[in-house]
Amino acid sequence: MNKDIDIKKLRLNCYRQSKEVGKFMLQMRVPGGFIDAKYLSIVQHIAQTYGDGNFHFGTRQTFNITGIPYENIPEVNKYLEQYIEEVETCLCDVNMNTIAGEEAYWEPQSGYPTIGARNITACIGNYHCICGNINTFELARKIESIIFPSHYHIKINISGCPNDCNKAHMCDFGIIGVARMEYHPERCIACGACVKACEKGATRVLSLNENLGRIEKDACCCVGCGECVRACPTSAWTRQETPFYRVIIGGRTGRQTPRAGKMFLNWATEDVILNTLKNWQKFSAYVMDNKPEYLHGGHLIDRAGYKKFKEIILDGVKLNPECLVAENIFWDETEYRSNFNVKPINLHK
């Protein structure tokens, strides 16, 4: 088959190359993986009109439509205008006429301007879940306008609670909703339900002091899941009104060095999260000398070193008093190629 297609340009446009030359898979962004069900008819229309009629739940919660012939892409892009306008501009307040915060004209009928910052994924969070501490997709929508459009690659996963169903531990910048608890001893009947819940489902930080008829807590190791609140029959445990967040950085899959991320911030407020992410472009630009590469965030942290990352990413960020920041990070990787870090000097970047 004689085709002359700029594959890389199409990838930037969120069309993925397929095994069959000339066929592509569209990835539509769904920030936080949560959206009005009416958009499913748009997905259906694209799949049935321009694609092969099939659909895949993207691993990053995008709507993926397979088997789109190269020739159909301009039409699909025109059709996408409304979806992008409604989801990115209206719902997430994204300025589509920028790239990494710099002004850049975007033709509304040309489809997505970049694939760089990947779709932000989220669990259903407290919109539905009895364990969730935060509204995950509302946070995702706030973050979308900070990281998108940008050619710099960052994967953000948001989980509503420390159970981390959405694998904040396996992406560049994982965000976990946590709660700080308040104990109201005047309501405590010392039934021990919280102690059992913490033992079974969390970090065993609670114990019952029989002499005082009160619960004691090793606050240091509390993960902020809220299981004690859920277990308490008298509301002796409640969550503080302000939601808090834990940030896990540098997690990844991959052929060479998959690894779970490590804690960077704990008990951060939403402002801290958003302001930290506002430094993401600056950090990426610093590491890659302003030339975006197909290299995601965790590798950038490796290149810069954690200390440099911390310095740039927290620049100007006013931390809330409760917020803790990792002094150091000791990565623990699975190396599929022994000594793969040992290589000729000309391969060092």
């Binding site: 935060i134 909703g177 809220g226 609140v229 859920r230």
Partner: peptide
């Protein structure tokens, strides 16, 4: 009403 003191997050309790 005690805002956000419910059993589940972002729910209130009335006591």
């Amino acid at each position: 009403k005690f805002p956000k003191q419910g059993r589940y997050s972002d729910t209130d309790i009335i006591k």
